[in-house]
């Protein structure tokens, strides 16, 4: 997971990089949970498989992050690791490992309300791939 936070007046923008598209999407998923909680306190218990689609790589990124953010907001699932098994410009299949939130062991750093489409981007760079996304916090 390789990311930096960029400044956005109201919200939280992140730029994620990865050597491959698989690494990029997996890195973006972990970034989201690194902002939410202390990843080292989360255990890789249960496994979930998810499949998401999108209009293009940026839309796919937003939809993927929306889906795993709901896993937290709706089901109390905290992510520990993410393996992207297949990715095309419009479809992605990933294995998520993590566990259910336990207030005794997990600290939630901040609320993330939503993953926005605002300036969402996935780009090829000389070193691999780069993605940008803004979270509503």
């Amino acid at each position: 997971m390789d990311y930096r936070i960029f400044d956005h007046t109201a919200d939280l923008g992140v730029e994620v990089t990865g050597a491959s598209l698989e690494e990029l999407y997996a890195g973006a998923a972990l970034t989201l949970f690194d902002l939410l909680t202390d990843l080292s306190s989360v255990r890789a218990g249960g496994v979930r498989e998810i499949v998401v689609s999108g209009e293009d790589p940026a839309d796919l990124l937003v939809n993927f992050l929306r889906e795993i953010l709901y896993a937290w907001n709706g089901d109390g699932f905290l992510l520990k690791s993410c393996l992207v098994r297949e990715v095309s410009p419009m479809r992605l299949k990933a294995l998520l490992r993590g566990e259910t939130y336990d207030p005794a062991r997990h600290r939630i750093k901040q609320e993330i309300k939503a993953v926005t489409y605002h300036q969402a981007a996935v780009e090829k760079t000389a070193a691999g791939w780069r993605a940008r996304v803004v979270f509503d916090v």
Binding site: T9, D11, Y117, H118, Q119, D136
Partner: peptide, 9 residues
């Protein structure tokens, strides 16, 4: 007003 996402705040 300030920078939001989509519409400004």
């Amino acid at each position: 007003m300030h920078w939001g996402y989509g519409f400004p705040i």
